[in-house]
Computed example of a mutant assay.
Amino acid sequence: MIVGVIGAGQMGAGIAQVSAGAGHDVLLADIDLARAEAGKAGIAKALGRLVAREKMAQSDADMLLARITPVADHAAFAPSDLVIEAATEREEIKRAIFASVGEHLSATAILASNTSSIPITRLAQAAPDPARFIGVHFFNPVPVMGLIELIRGLATSDDTLATVEAYGRGLGKQIVHANDAPGFIVNRVLMPLINEAIFALGEGVATMQDIDAGCRLGLNHPMGPITLADFIGLDTCLEIIRVLQSGTGDPKFRPAPLLVQYVEAGWVGKKAGRGFYDWTGDKPVPTR
């Protein structure tokens, strides 16, 4: 299968890596060729660490990288069997991508979105054929996390669902099926937890170290919700929470004011070097 990936950031590069690792030829694009090439270079760096730790043979890493081709524009996706969009969690950006790439896809190619919250039926309006459109939500970091959420839109065909489910299982991932509701399964449950933790921090219920430690140890989570928010990206968390709020009309999903302030300040988490923690050193340091 030829798999196209649109977006060479952390999520897109991860999808490209696991797809190539499963034997698929991958076309990787971003806003320009330089960004796509940088995404492949990041994959090479990650594989180099695996080789150094003797978790992967150099020959296997070389073969995986050889299956990934950075491309300059959407026209290069013409031979793709499956194209996965992994751009930022902004509906208008995703719609523009679907309209652009849709002009170049074959009559049998499947277009998928890695959206973590936006309804698939609504996004499918911008696709060339809603029957060949589906939600395929990977989790970060993609090479490590073993889950994919599949979200079927109102028009998604049985064949599309079966093809993408087989692709996901071929990556060694566990598949769960979510109905087309805002946030799907995981973020419908996770984002209120993160949002409430930030409410608690803003209201002075506890320090963020104690909030994170309490949830990590008391709920047996691998990391606290505020640390996790920094990993996900506070801007992404805010976008998802706003999708939940607008999609359900339920005021319980209103975003925490402190979360909004941090995003407005540009302190959006690990990718920016600062969120609720300072990530510029060897270890994260609380900023509050």
Results as ranks from 00 to 15, higher is better:
40 K>D: 11
150 L>Y: 11
287 T>K: 02
40 K>C: 05
159 D>G: 08
147 L>H: 13
275 G>A: 07
14 G>K: 06
51 V>R: 00
64 L>F: 03
223 M>A: 12
265 A>T: 05
217 L>F: 06
62 D>L: 11
191 M>P: 05
28 L>I: 12
42 G>T: 10
85 E>S: 09
186 V>W: 08
116 S>N: 10
46 A>M: 09
117 S>M: 02
94 K>Q: 10
233 G>Y: 14
97 I>C: 05
260 V>W: 11
46 A>I: 09
183 G>M: 07
25 D>R: 09
259 L>Q: 06
245 Q>E: 13
82 L>P: 02
185 I>Y: 00
210 D>P: 00
234 L>I: 02
108 T>E: 09
150 L>R: 10
169 R>N: 14
150 L>M: 15
43 I>K: 04
277 Y>M: 05
144 V>S: 05
87 A>Y: 04
19 S>Q: 07
107 A>R: 14
234 L>D: 06
226 I>M: 04
207 T>Q: 00
237 C>P: 02
142 V>D: 03
109 A>F: 12
260 V>G: 09
156 T>I: 05
240 I>G: 10
276 F>Q: 04
3 V>P: 01
243 V>D: 08
8 A>H: 08
287 T>F: 02
195 N>W: 07
70 P>D: 00
109 A>L: 12
11 M>K: 01
77 F>N: 13
97 I>M: 07
110 I>T: 08
212 D>K: 15
214 G>T: 12
218 G>F: 02
29 A>F: 01
53 R>L: 12
181 A>L: 09
219 L>C: 11
65 L>I: 13
215 C>Q: 13
144 V>F: 04
258 L>P: 08
224 G>K: 15
270 K>W: 10
108 T>R: 15
62 D>H: 09
208 M>T: 11
227 T>S: 09
187 N>W: 09
220 N>D: 10
146 G>T: 12
39 G>M: 09
118 I>K: 15
158 D>A: 14
152 R>V: 08
103 E>M: 15
51 V>G: 00
205 V>L: 02
41 A>D: 12
90 R>I: 08
235 D>R: 06
229 A>L: 10
193 L>N: 01
217 L>V: 08
155 A>K: 14
100 S>H: 06
249 G>D: 03
83 V>S: 03
44 A>F: 01
107 A>F: 03
268 V>K: 12
